[in-house]
């Protein structure tokens, strides 16, 4: 299992904290929690209230969603350095998936209150962390738009493209 010095090292290497000075990083990490999850333990459940950002410092996590008929589907596997909950830390909402430790996992957790506190006290780390959260969100946006494109150019295109296009446009407010 990783040690305190390694936690700092790995946190320093994360894009999320890349622009922080050493003092700012230490101030932020002092306000975060480190959590250890043993293999197969549930980190959070789909639908549970989410208001924290998590960074996977060690191990693998499986994200699973409930599908129809009570079947659970693995939608993603995340490895070291992955960020979860970057939306929840800004705008709390029910978790979109269940996160399960696939191996023993170490997580760095930043609560919404911590980020709010950094902002409220005009801490110099606040705009730097927010800047990185915006970058993460932009990346999620690009991925979403690519998936929409893929959906139209494959599945829907093959069956009834005009109808699919009409339905999509209708749902988009056309």
């Amino acid at each position: 299992m990783i040690e305190t010095e390694q936690i700092f090292e790995r946190a320093r290497a994360l894009p999320l904290f890349a622009s922080l000075s050493e003092a700012e990083l230490q101030a932020v990490l002092m306000q975060c929690q480190i959590a250890l999850y043993l293999e197969n333990k549930i980190i959070f459940r789909e639908g549970a209230h989410g208001d924290s950002l998590m960074v996977l410092l060690e191990g693998d996590i499986s994200l699973r969603c409930a599908a129809e008929d009570g079947v659970t589907v693995e939608v993603a596997v995340l490895g070291q350095g992955a960020v979860l909950g970057e939306m929840a830390v800004i705008d709390p909402a029910p978790r979109a998936a269940t996160a399960v430790a696939r191996s023993n996992a170490v997580l760095l957790i930043m609560q919404k209150d911590t980020l709010d506190q950094l902002i409220a006290t005009d801490h110099p780390a606040a705009p730097k962390v927010l800047q990185q959260v915006l970058q993460l969100l932009a990346a999620r946006f690009r991925t979403m738009e690519d998936r929409i494109e893929e959906l139209f150019e494959s599945r829907l295109e093959v069956s009834e493209p005009d109808k699919a296009q009409a339905a999509w446009n209708l749902a988009a407010g056309e």
Binding site: M87, I90, D91, A93, A96, I119, D122, A126, P127, L130, Q131, V133, L134, L137, A138, R140, F141, M144, R147, I148, L151, R155, L156, A164, A167, W168, A171, A172
Partner: peptide
């Protein structure tokens, strides 16, 4: 900084709506 946070929230809400629509379409 307030603008940064509000912009992030706006992006998140737009993203969540798009996500729901995508899931339905798919």
């Amino acid at each position: 900084v307030r603008f940064q946070r509000l912009l992030a929230r706006e992006m998140i809400r737009t993203l969540r709506r798009a996500n729901q629509r995508f899931t339905r379409a798919a």
